[in-house]
Computed example of a mutant assay.
Amino acid sequence: MALLHRVSRVYAVLATAVPVFGPGTAVAMGVLGDGWLIASLVLTAAAGALLGARILPDRAEVVAALGGGNDRAVALARDLSMTSGMFALLWRSSSS
Rank of each mutant, 00 (worst) to 15 (best):
P57I: 06
A64T: 11
L51H: 04
A64R: 13
G22C: 11
Y11Q: 03
D34F: 05
S8Q: 05
L50K: 01
G24I: 12
G33T: 12
I55L: 08
L3N: 09
L43C: 11
L3Y: 07
V13A: 13
A2N: 13
A64M: 03
R6Y: 04
V31K: 09
V62T: 12
G30H: 09
G48T: 06
R72S: 14
S95I: 13
A53G: 10
R78Q: 14
R78A: 15
S93A: 15
L43N: 09
L89A: 15
D34P: 00
A2D: 14
P19R: 01
T44I: 08
E61G: 06
I38H: 10
V63D: 15
A77T: 11
S84M: 09
A2V: 12
L41A: 14
A75V: 13
G52N: 09
S8K: 03
D34M: 08
P57H: 06
A12K: 00
A26E: 02
A75P: 05
S94L: 03
A53N: 00
A26W: 00
L41H: 10
G52A: 14
S95T: 13
A60V: 00
M86V: 15
S8L: 11
L80R: 07
W36V: 10
I38P: 02
V18M: 08
A17D: 05
L4H: 12
A77P: 05
P57S: 09
A17Q: 04
A2M: 11
L90D: 03
H5N: 11
L89K: 04
V42G: 07
L14E: 01
L43W: 08
T83I: 13
A77D: 14
V20F: 14
S95G: 08
G52C: 08
L43Y: 08
G33M: 06
A47M: 02
A45V: 15
V10P: 02
S81P: 00
F21A: 15
